[in-house]
């Protein structure tokens, strides 16, 4: 049986479709964690004046973790995007070009997810209480 599977090519040949979703998943986790923490805290545990210090600390922590993960994922994307000499639009019919494309899209999604996380975090910078 003839096999047409190409040989492993370059250091990021293991990059898969899933890698695209890692950065937005970090956003989703951060978003859900921030929302659920604040919703549960405000509904069940907040003092009468709605002081939000505990959730602000928690969200600060979530943000540091999420942004660190995204920076790491974005770094992988950036290295894949720059692999070799070829420039955009990464539309060659080669495994390398595909990896560069995936790297580039991962990088862009990391940037978008990072910005969206900062949007969420900003709410906790501005708002001091549940209300």
């Amino acid at each position: 049986m003839k096999t047409t599977k190409p040989a492993a090519d370059g250091l990021l040949s293991s990059a898969k479709l899933w890698t695209l979703t890692f950065a937005p998943l970090c956003w989703a986790a951060h978003f859900l964690a921030s929302y659920l923490t604040s919703a549960i805290y405000c509904a069940k545990y907040a003092p009468a004046d709605g002081d939000g210090l505990p959730i602000r600390i928690a969200v600060a922590l979530f943000t540091v973790i999420a942004l660190s993960l995204i920076a790491w994922i974005g770094g992988i994307g950036l290295r894949a995007h720059h692999m070799g000499e070829t420039k955009l639009p990464h539309d060659d019919n080669t495994s390398r070009s595909e990896q560069r494309f995936l790297g580039f899209a991962t990088l862009l999604l990391s940037l978008l997810s990072g910005v969206a996380i900062l949007f969420t975090a900003l709410v906790f910078v501005i708002m001091e209480t549940c209300h």
Partner: peptide, 19 residues
């Protein structure tokens, strides 16, 4: 809903305009 919940979703609603 609590103001902070509204804030979170308002921020995300603005963010989706980017992509």
């Amino acid at each position: 809903l609590p103001g902070i919940t509204i804030g979170i979703f308002s921020a995300a609603s603005e963010a989706v305009a980017i992509p």
